[in-house]
Design a protein around this nucleic acid. Structure first.
Lengths: 140, 140
DNA sequence: ACTGAAATTAGACACAGTCCAGATTATGAA
DNA sequence: TTCATAATCTGGACTGTGTCTAATTTCAGT
């Protein structure tokens, strides 16, 4: 998906640029997301972070993910009714979502074009456009 | 949104056509959705149905909504991380979602065109394409 | 080292949705 | 009508995600 090697030092810089005080826990959580470049649920982040090094509480994981969201360091992907996925890729893109396997794959936004969207009423601003292509492993 | 008057009798027919045994509770739940033509959460359906007539349990509302989904009588709209909305409109369409107000508005799929979607791998079939335009009430 | 602000924590809590075992209702044969 | 059977519905316990709170820890600046 992405093979950039994120050192923790590099992530400290990224956090600072996003106006986030780089604490131990925040660095570990960022590392979990960015070193893999995968879509992870809060649950998965918690498990990964507590596998190595320091213990991090559930509350901190949720607080931190929401902080990262607010600071636009990561995005949230809402495809599964039961949990949110967090996406370290903030380049505009969309998703394939395999309903059977839960697999979530990026689609570069540059590749696709959406035309004919209705005009927005006055005072309403677009925040973002999400395209989700729900797929399944053939058969039925 | 839609001003067709659904009688309960008409809904019985709709249920039958979708291979659903039309019980009291199922008719009331269908009526709640189709008479309003709005996106409702399970919670809202439960409240509406129990406002009038017979008592219907939470379990039945969830069972029934999932049955309707399986039988493709309704669709689910996943935009809010905390709850699913059920949509009686099964004509292909997309959504505006106001992040501030929670308001959900239809966009006719016929109006818009999406081009450039990547080829799917062998053995993978498209289930549906959801476009969600997230909007907010200006300012920031 | 001392102090206040920021961050983290455990655990209680809220709430959507599921599960289960028992009660109710519908169906249909005799 | 009566009985047997299957389908449906039910309350309530339960699960899992995410939030809240009050107390503790960490950290920056003096």
């Amino acid at each position: 998906m992405r093979s950039i090697h994120y050192t923790r030092d590099a992530l400290v810089e990224v956090l600072r640029r996003h106006d986030i005080n780089p604490t131990h826990q925040r660095i570990e959580i960022a590392y979990a997301l960015f070193s893999r470049g995968e879509h992870l649920s809060a649950d998965q982040v918690l498990a990964i972070v507590n596998d190595r090094h320091s213990q991090t509480s559930k509350a901190t994981v949720y607080n931190t993910l929401n902080l990262f969201l607010r600071k636009k360091l990561i995005r949230e992907v809402i495809v599964d009714p039961s949990k949110v996925f967090y996406d370290p890729n903030t380049i505009p893109h969309h998703h394939f979502y395999n309903v059977d396997t839960g697999e979530l794959v990026d689609i570069d936004a540059a590749e696709i074009t959406i035309s004919g969207l209705p005009q927005l009423p006055e005072g309403i601003v677009t925040e973002g456009v999400d395209v989700i292509v729900r797929v399944r492993s053939k058969a039925e």
